[in-house]
């Protein structure tokens, strides 16, 4: 970890915007809310981590080739086009974009998933995709928002 959550909060307060947004550490937050519940100053650390991730993606300055933001964006795109996530297909996309060697090291896991009937190859999708897309795009008037194309 480059920066501990404490350091991230200190950097945010001292306005070190670039350092924070480029830090890998914000992407390491797994969103477990332990700190949020614990913080004696009631700082909503998890939500701040989210805000930083959103900003880093919007400004395109997240660490490139780092698998975590890549997963977030692939997830975002799959939801836009299908309305649902098919986990096995999502992970395959992640591996192809971020780390194709992971495909080789996880082949046994893949076989295990096939054996246990959990490897889904057909996209799960909703019926009313047009409705969902319209809803998600209804928010475009705000120029801070991003479209799936920009996220690509």
């Amino acid at each position: 970890m480059e920066h501990s959550p404490r350091q991230i909060m200190a950097l945010v307060r001292a306005d070190f915007k670039d350092e924070v947004l480029r830090s890998r550490s914000i992407w390491l937050c797994a969103s477990c809310y332990a700190c949020t519940v614990e913080c004696p100053r009631e700082i909503r650390i998890t939500d701040i981590m989210y805000a930083l991730k959103q900003r880093a993606i919007l400004e395109g300055i997240y660490p490139k080739r780092f698998p975590i933001p890549i997963l977030a964006k692939e997830f975002f795109k799959m939801v836009h086009s299908k309305g649902r996530i098919t986990e096995t297909l999502l992970v395959m996309r992640l591996f192809l974009r971020a780390n194709w060697r992971a495909v080789l090291s996880s082949w046994r896991q893949g076989i295990g998933l096939i054996r246990t009937g959990r490897f889904v190859l057909r996209h799960e999708r909703i019926e009313n995709r047009a409705q969902l897309a319209g809803m998600l795009d209804s928010d475009l008037h705000d120029e801070r928002r991003i479209t799936p194309k920009e996220a690509a």
Binding site: Q54, A72, K73, M135, R145
Partner: peptide, 20 residues
């Protein structure tokens, strides 16, 4: 016809859309 909740990954990209 429910859709994906967005989980943690979607929230990392856009908060308002995640809520929608």
């Amino acid at each position: 016809d429910w859709n994906c909740c967005g989980a943690t990954a979607y929230m990392s990209v856009d908060e308002t859309k995640a809520c929608i």
